[in-house]
């Protein structure tokens, strides 16, 4: 099995005619994702690459094409409203790739989506992939294959690095999820840990964190209390200076809080094996499989 997306996923792409939206829509279709519709207001009635229907609203994508999942590639100024629209339309799972959404917008979006009973992944995330079934977002399809490891990460390319290293050692994944690098996001580490724990095909879990905030620490405590499967972790940013935003809006050490050292220590205290280098994840996973 896999978490959050599989062969039943019926995807609508919000911002399908944009530069990133069109490129990644083709990649997703090629991978085998069921892209059932695209939305670009004002372009309803056209078709994307002569096949995928383009609609004016997400509501129509749900009513006419049976979309249950959405992926958002629209620019930051319109992204918050795109998430509201997806939630209003009854989409169950909303994946927001857009980077640069103001945090004050996300403060309003997050509770709204939760009250509608929808799940949000991101923003500022690479999306997710369930190898052999579906991919939603921008993770390259060829870097991982189906296997027993569930992976969740705050990063994009660092995730590719780790799953690629696993793949070259012939270790595949059930689902690989990027939760994004913003300080306020939807799905968090604990949501993914719970889903992987409940997924019978996932045998071990990799958590890739970074400096800033307390999500990793809370995830580690959750592992100790609720997760029976082995969990292995890596934390990026051991050499990051305090007070500086390291690319991701959420990757910042405030005062003395949110350092890599603190997170690594909490991992170790709660039975999460810590890889010193990204490549060391492979050995730690091999030991527990």
């Amino acid at each position: 099995m896999s978490i959050f997306i599989d062969k039943e996923t019926r995807l609508v792409v919000q911002g399908i005619t944009g530069r990133d939206g069109s490129f990644h829509t083709r990649q997703m279709i090629e991978y085998g994702t069921q892209v059932v519709a695209g939305v670009t207001p004002g372009k309803g009635g056209q078709r994307f690459d002569d096949s995928v229907p383009i609609l004016n609203t997400v509501e129509r994508a749900v009513s006419d094409e049976g979309a249950n999942t959405s992926v958002i590639y629209v620019p930051p100024a319109f992204a918050a409203d795109a998430i509201f629209e997806a939630a209003d339309a009854g989409i169950e799972f909303i994946v927001c790739i857009t980077e640069g959404i103001p945090v004050l917008d996300m403060m309003r979006v997050r509770p709204y989506v939760m009250e509608k009973g929808a799940r949000l992944l991101g923003p500022n995330c690479p999306g997710l992939i369930s190898p052999g079934k579906s991919k939603v977002g921008i993770i390259p399809g060829e870097i991982t294959h189906a296997g027993p490891v569930g992976l969740v990460s705050r990063s994009g390319t660092l995730t590719y690095e780790v799953v690629h290293k696993l793949a070259t050692s012939d270790i595949g994944t059930t689902t690989c999820v990027g939760i994004g690098g913003d300080p306020i996001n939807g799905t968090n580490f604990i949501d993914c840990l719970a889903a992987f724990e409940a997924d019978p095909e996932t045998e071990a879990i990799v958590v890739i964190g970074e400096i800033g905030g307390t999500d990793e620490q809370e995830a580690a405590r959750y592992v100790k209390e609720k997760v029976t499967k082995p969990v292995v972790g890596f934390i990026a940013g051991q050499t990051a200076p305090p007070g500086r935003r390291m690319g991701h809006a959420g990757a910042i050490i405030s005062g003395s809080a949110g350092t890599a050292e603190e997170k690594i220590q909490t991992f170790e205290e709660n039975g999460v094996g810590v890889a010193q280098r990204p490549v060391d994840v492979v050995g730690l996973i091999r030991d527990v499989l």
Binding site: S153, R154, S155, G156, T157, L158, T159, Y160, E161, G181, I208, E210, I211, F234, A236, G237, Q238, T239, A240, M246, G247, H248, A251, A260, Q276, R277, P278
Partner: peptide
């Protein structure tokens, strides 16, 4: 010179390592 913030941080850490 790295693509991606997480990988950039991990690269710095590896330089130190």
């Amino acid at each position: 010179c790295v693509n991606g913030a997480g990988l950039a941080m991990a690269t710095m850490d590896l330089v130190k390592y």
